[in-house]
């Protein structure tokens, strides 16, 4: 009888402890999103993405904002940490780019952060080249 009680008590304690650890690490110290390893929610061309934003910015935001997307297009501009596709999609990389990709048709994966009215471009960050 006593042994059974101790066993139940230990089990309850263990469950509480693991719940605590889960909460502590799972919620408080939740890992940041790793865009590089996420599967893209959408895969489309740079032109199509801008068309969607021009047609209805609100709807496009609800579709793409904060999502991992894959964009294909020709690299029209390239600087240290930025590639611009088809003059319409601004892609920010975490590290400096080593390979020269200007004028090549490439596919870039990143997180859509929104539409920039000043330059009429869609911006994506945390990019990687596929």
């Amino acid at each position: 009888m006593k042994r059974k009680k101790t066993a139940i008590l230990t089990a309850v304690l263990l469950i509480m402890l693991s719940a605590g650890v889960y909460f502590y690490y799972g919620i408080i110290f939740k890992e940041a999103r790793n865009i590089e390893s996420e599967a893209p929610d959408f895969s489309l061309t740079a032109k199509k993405l801008l068309e969607d934003y021009n047609a209805d910015p609100k709807k496009a935001d609800s579709l793409y904002l904060n999502k991992t997307i894959e964009i294909t297009g020709k690299a029209t501009k390239e600087t240290d940490s930025v590639i611009i596709l088809e003059n319409t999609v601004f892609c920010l990389f975490k590290e400096e780019l080593k390979n020269k990709m200007i004028n090549n048709k490439i596919t870039i994966k990143g997180k859509c952060i929104g539409y920039d009215e000043l330059f009429m471009e869609v911006k994506i960050d945390q990019c990687t080249v596929k």
């Binding site: 939740k30 940041a32 904060n66």
Partner: peptide, 26 residues
Amino acid sequence: LALIKGFRFKVALMEEHFNENYMESE
């Protein structure tokens, strides 16, 4: 012009709260 989703925090949960509760970046 600054896009709110472009702000990065060290702590992921803080970034989530910033976007969802305070700035309502959607």
